[in-house]
Design a protein around this nucleic acid. Structure first.
Lengths: 175, 175
DNA sequence: GCACATGTAAAGTGACCGTTTTACACTGCG
DNA sequence: CGCAGTGTAAAACGGTCACTTTACATGTGC
């Protein structure tokens, strides 16, 4: 496997499991099986590594969530949470741990949320046949809520979010 | 002002602004204007301080959110987020930064979420005249979602959550 | 008036932080 | 053949980490 890929996958796991600040470079190099010199050649510094991990995760997450119905959207979230463990949104966690002070990380977070919003906009159009900002924002809230509530209420809470989104879409359809 | 109160208030601010791991004990003692010896006498160690901060915040948050209508609940959240700055749920952030491995912190988080759930259960009864787990869980999802989405979409998103909760309550009322 | 609790200031503990450096091995290409 | 590129291992960098210790100043109550 490619060195950079191995590094990013290892880092994503360790960051998600133990937190960003708490995960030292030694554990990262050891986990990826590379020297620290190589790590710094590839990602510059720790914040660069965090940003790279987030951007790669965004690509992977988006690929999974690229659906065009409310059902499929929350179904994808359910699968994601079931196989990745639910510890809240990694983008918001990175942003929070760094106090919002690292531009590359803040931008990765904002970009990810914006991309999610565009996907939901498309789903709304597919569901009710027209744009509806209020509905889209509500679905994003339910999606965000499920992502975080799953950490303490379990993945089953995604089903509740899916049904609530469905009901709101139904109301929007007849409005 | 009481030393312990001053310490907890300072710590809450610094933890919220910069993250838990990133906030060193020096900055805490300096911020609170106390010696490190006194700090350790009062809270034992850093995890003890974090747990104490969370438990105090739970008390304060709950006092603000102790309402009995959907409108008032989200109104309270809006006020809270407007005056405290929205960086996501501090309980989930602490839990995530410590990898869920610190019992006192994990318990503080779970207790806080459980208390929130009980409040929402009471609100549901007040709103529709009977218990409704599905509605309560949906409202908790919207509340959680608004808390986190406010970090990147601004406090205005709380209004959207409030309206969505209202609609779902309306549906539950006629069901 | 003396013990005691509670506070301060400041130095010291060893461990670990992110990052750089030094020295060396392997590979593929002109 | 030689050399640039890419990797390793391991030590060193100065700094900061959470936490403890030492030494000293208070005020309070018996």
């Amino acid at each position: 496997m490619d060195i950079r890929t191995r590094l990013l996958e290892t880092a994503e796991q360790l960051f998600d499991r133990h937190g960003f600040t708490a995960t030292g470079m030694d554990r990262l190099t050891q986990g990826a099986g590379i020297s620290s010199r190589t790590l710094y050649k590839h990602v510059g510094n720790k914040n660069g590594l965090i940003a790279a991990v987030l951007n790669e995760r965004d690509r992977r997450f988006h690929r999974q969530v690229e659906t065009d119905s409310v059902d499929a959207l929350f179904g994808a979230l359910e699968i994601w949470l079931a196989q990745e463990a639910a510890r809240g949104c990694l983008f918001l966690r990175a942003w929070g741990e760094t106090g919002g002070d690292v531009p590359e990380i803040a931008e990765a977070m904002a970009r990810h949320k914006q991309r999610m919003r565009e996907r939901i906009d498309a789903i709304v159009v597919a569901e009710i046949g027209r744009q509806d900002d209020e509905l889209a924002e509500s679905i994003q809230l339910l999606f965000e809520g499920a992502t975080h509530a799953a950490a303490y209420r379990g993945v089953a809470t995604v089903e509740v979010a899916r049904r609530a989104a469905h009901r709101l879409a139904g109301l929007a359809r007849i409005a």
